[in-house]
Write a protein that binds this DNA or RNA. Structure first.
Length: 920
RNA sequence: GGGCAGUUAGCUCAGUUGGUUAGAGCGCCUGCUUUACACGCAGGAUGUCGGGGGUUCGAAUCCCUCACUGCCCACCA
């Protein structure tokens, strides 16, 4: 194509993302189109996503990267489609995790939070968080995330804290939050309770002991909890023990004789072990329930430090787990060890944050009651009754299709979890977090009906008092009722006392995250944002926090706002290394640091590698070579633009598709239309991988490999090329925002690509002729390759065209150029087969007349292979068509297509036979 | 114990409601300065779609069954 007179454009031949991306980020920030209020078109339906807030102390890892990539694709796509997109970013204070990190830092400095004191410690955490938040913000921008920073929130900022208090007060008012003495999961290292979901199970091989306990044999993996066991439970229908039920007896035990009684309860499995067990009400969830049922005393023998209480007699003060062997030895000496199973495998429960074994112990804590009925706030939820429990309502909105979970198989796990949900322990004994908005008046009144221990409200981390002793005191005293209030009250409404102390505990971090979709929009105030953007359109997050977070948002939103928090949930999988291992800090050698990769290969390549080749809910593997291959693609796109720029000179936006002049033009426009439709439909259905692959295929294998090559031959395609580049940049923009935005600048458009309209698919007929052209070109190339023609030498090709001769005659120039033939003729008169290599494609026979250069033996071999293949295929088709059932039942088009194919193969077989004969 | 995935080319994975001779990327082999790109171009090789059974004219796709891998939930003393 002649380039004289055109303005030459300076574009480096290799795309260098690192030198381009920061400038683009800055330009986006400046234009602030990520803020829906600043969009050029004010109309358009809102579309909102609440960004799952990364931990304020975190650094960007591959999991964040995949989340940002997917959400940004959706946000950019919807924005280009004219929606008013709000993607609201923020960070999570991540109570336990953050406190643990800061405590570790303190340990390095040789101090502890207790030494610092609450306020000084919190100041330190705040400073640490402030530093980290800056890092996360910067890293998110590096990924290209087009979220609205003007609305950024933090779970611990004033507005959100007010929302948390409001939520607590309302739930307490409605009887959904209560304080109770229960067995809780206690982490002795974090010195706090954990919710059921914060406990993980680690398989562990351990010893399992069988002890003689009076008349029965009991089994346990934890002898240290058994000190005060004095109730034997058997099945009511168990003949072996029936005579013992109701009896009391003296039993020799760890610290001497204990008085044990025998009760019957159907929870006991007759066939398991000896069919009898003792119970430890204070340190097992099941035993506690049983104890409540039979009104048995609950005595704590392990305290919050994991040490024995006074109740453990001579072991008091010692670490419980560490004392196990000593206790067994003591029982051994008394001859009470009946058997030890050395290879027992059990699931050790550990803290999900620090891995420390969890101690179940009794404690007075705040809980969310998920089962009690409460008035349904809004008719919007279409709940068939006026009242519902939290879990019923949360299940309902998914059941009734008001929330769609993608992929839908996670619905099942959601329902299962929701159905089996127990009350949620929300108080934590850590300092960092939302302080529970409850105030205590310390004045005490003698009274006698207190049911539970009032232990350790004020200093739970101090030396643990003994529950029983405290509860004896409690039975004689009572305090004023706790005051639950959004703001700190001036005085006790009952006695007027002005000395009020706030509950020292903080709330589970998921309590505040559960409010995220609406607290960030201003709730409880009825703000414009809340009205416009809630319910949010999409929640995109990893399946690992379906329970932790997604379920809790549904609970909180349906109850507090009377709306679903989001219409759709898209769950992505975990990012693993090439070996399928979880990326972790303990294996830095295989972990991929997205920031390193962005620096090396660009954010666009990083994003593509996370999105293409993955499907929702399935884990995805990531390794450097994969990212590099997408870097190659981005560079290809860059060079397509470079070529077009050099060809066209000055790029201008093209509003309407140009009129096609040639076969190739018609073909590429038809392909573009099909692609546009595919991409638009696909992105609406969140088929990121399939869409990415389709656009990739079009860009590289169709546009670059065929159309641009033809453009070099045909010329005069300035409009076509500009148009194609423009549309391709638009289609790619959600996936690769940086390179596309950068290239878009060449068009001199008024608006950035980010807010330019998404392409519309026009209507065009499929262009079948082009496929024939392609196969002829490919066949010639193939012949040249297999006939071992020296490639530098241009050769003459004769195409003996049958029914496509007209088409081929008009395309000889194109075919000749693409196949690199100096001469190409369409003729009926053919050279002798012995002097030419030949091939048949789509009814066209191609001859490469190269008598002198052809390796006759090789050609014969090649023809024979081709003949074999054609015969095999023809035979298969014949059999298929001979089957009456097939011709009768299969759709007509399918049968016709098979017939056609058979005819083609048969003629191919004939011709190949002739050719082979001629060669001999 | 209950549930959910996965098993397709050497590797990582697609494969929409059953319908051309099962695809892509990477890797591999051969050849190439072809003035957009060697982060490239052209050509090539490689698969009993985990095993078995069934439904169907037709199965990677639907059903049953077995095996292995992974995850989630529960956890019995």
């Amino acid at each position: 194509m002649p380039r004289t007179g055109k303005k030459s454009v300076q574009i480096p031949p290799v795309y260098q993302p690192a030198s381009v991306e920061p400038g683009i980020t800055a330009a986006w920030e400046k234009s602030s189109f990520a803020n829906p209020d600043r969009l050029p078109a004010k109309r358009g339906k809102p579309f909102s996503i609440a960004l799952p807030p990364p931990n304020a102390t975190g650094v960007l890892h591959a999991g964040h990267a995949v989340m940002l990539a997917i959400q940004d694709i959706v946000a950019r796509f919807q924005r280009m489609r004219g929606r008013r997109v709000l993607w609201l970013p923020g960070t999570d204070h991540a109570a336990i995790a953050t406190q643990a990190v800061v405590e570790k830092l303190l340990a390095k400095e040789g101090t502890t939070r207790q030494q610092l004191g609450r306020e000084a410690f919190l100041a330190k955490v705040r400073q640490f968080v402030a530093d980290s938040q800056g890092t996360i913000r910067k890293q998110m921008r590096t990924m290209g995330a087009s979220c609205d920073w003007s609305r950024e929130r933090y779970t611990l900022d004033d507005g959100l804290s007010a929302a948390v208090n409001e939520a607590f007060v309302r739930m307490h008012r409605d009887g959904l939050i209560y304080r109770g003495y229960r067995i809780v999961n206690w982490c002795p290292r974090c010195h706090s309770t954990l919710s059921d979901d914060e406990v993980e199970y680690k398989e562990q091989r351990t010893k399992f002991y069988y002890f003689t306990y009076g008349p029965v044999v009991i089994g346990t993996a934890r002898p240290e909890t058994k000190f005060l066991d004095k109730t034997i439970v058997v099945h009511p229908e168990d003949e072996r023990y029936r005579h013992l039920v109701g009896k009391t007896m003296d039993v020799e035990w760890i610290e001497g004789k204990v008085s044990a009684n025998v009760i019957a309860d159907p929870v006991v499995d007759k066939d398991f072990g000896s069919g009898a067990m003792t119970i430890t009400p204070a340190h097992s969830f099941e035993d506690f329930e049983l104890a409540q049922k039979h009104k048995l005393p609950v005595v704590q023998i392990i305290n919050e430090d994991g040490n024995f209480t006074q109740a453990a007699g001579s072991f008091a003060g010692k670490n419980a787990r560490a004392s196990r062997d000593a206790i067994v030895a003591k029982l051994q000496a008394k001859g009470l060890v009946s058997r030890v199973d050395e290879h027992y495998v059990h699931n050790l429960s550990v803290c999900y944050r620090c891995g420390t074994p969890v101690e179940p112990l009794p404690s007075k804590q705040w809980f969310v009651n998920v089962s009690v009925k409460c008035k349904v706030l809004s008719s919007k939820l279409k709940y068939p009754q006026k009242e519902a429990s939290l879990k019923e309502l949360a299940a309902w909105v998914v059941q009734s299709g008001q929330i769609e979970i993608i992929p839908d198989r996670f619905q099942k796990t959601y329902f299962h979890w929701m159905d089996n949900l127990r009350d949620w322990c929300i108080s934590r004994q850590i300092w960092f977090g939302h302080r529970i908005p409850v105030y205590y008046c310390k004045r005490e009144f003698p009274i006698s009906n207190s049911q539970f221990s009032n232990k350790s409200q004020i200093s739970p981390s101090g030396g643990s008092p003994e529950g029983r002793q405290n509860s004896k005191i409690d039975s004689k005293l009572n305090t004023c009722p706790p005051i639950v209030s959004v703001a700190k009250p001036k005085k006790c409404p009952r006695c007027g006392n002005t000395k009020l102390e706030q509950d020292p505990d903080t709330l589970d971090t998921w309590f505040s995250s559960g409010l995220w979709t609406f607290s960030t929009l201003g709730w409880p105030a009825k703000t414009k944002d809340l009205k416009t953007y809630h319910p949010t359109s999409l929640m995109e997050t990893g399946y690992d926090i379906l329970f932790f977070w997604v379920a809790r948002m549904i609970i909180m939103s349906t109850y507090l706002v009377g709306e679903v928090p989001f219409r759709q949930v898209y769950l992505h999988g975990m990012v693993r290394d090439k070996n399928g291992q979880k990326m972790s800090k303990s294996r830095p050698e295989t972990a991929i640091d997205p920031l390193d990769m962005i620096e090396k290969y660009g954010a666009d390549a990083m994003r593509l590698s996370l999105v293409i080749g993955t499907t929702p809910g399935n884990d995805t593997r990531l390794w450097e070579e994969k990212i590099a291959s997408y870097r190659n693609f981005v560079n290809k796109l860059w060079n397509i633009a470079r070529f077009i720029s050099l060809t066209v000179g000055e790029l201008k936006p093209v509003t309407a598709p140009p009129k096609p002049k040639t076969l190739a033009d018609r073909w590429i426009l038809a392909e573009l239309n099909a692609l546009t439709k595919r991409a638009t439909d696909g992105l609406q259905r969140y088929e990121f991988s399939a869409v990415g692959e389709a656009v990739y295929e079009f860009t590289w294998s169709k546009l670059a490999d065929w159309y641009l090559e033809i453009a070099k031959v045909e010329g005069g395609k300035e409009k076509m090329l500009s148009y194609l580049l423009q549309q391709v940049l638009k289609l790619w923009h959600p996936f690769t925002p940086f390179v596309t935005e950068h290239l878009w600048e060449r068009f001199g458009a008024r608006q950035p690509l980010m807010v330019s309209p998404w392409p519309k698919a026009g209507r065009t007929k499929a262009v079948n002729d082009f496929a024939h052209l392609q196969s002829v070109v490919t066949a010639i190339r193939n012949l040249r390759s297999t006939a071992k023609v020296e490639p530098a030498k241009r050769v003459a090709v004769q195409v003996a065209a049958g029914k496509h001769s007209k088409l081929l005659k008009t395309q000889t120039a194109v075919i000749a150029a693409l196949a690199r033939c100096s001469e190409l003729t369409v003729a009926a008169k053919l050279p002798k087969p012995s002097q030419a290599a030949s091939a048949m494609v789509s009814g066209v026979t191609i001859y490469l007349p190269l008598a002198g250069m052809l390796d006759a033996g090789k050609e014969q071999e090649r023809l024979r292979r081709e003949l074999d293949e054609a015969e095999r295929y023809a035979k298969m088709l014949e059999q298929k068509l001979a089957n009456d059932a097939f011709t009768a039942r299969a759709p007509q088009q399918v049968v016709a297509a098979e017939r056609e194919k058979l005819a083609v193969q048969q003629s191919k077989v004939e011709k190949l036979k002739e050719q082979l004969a001629a060669l001999r």
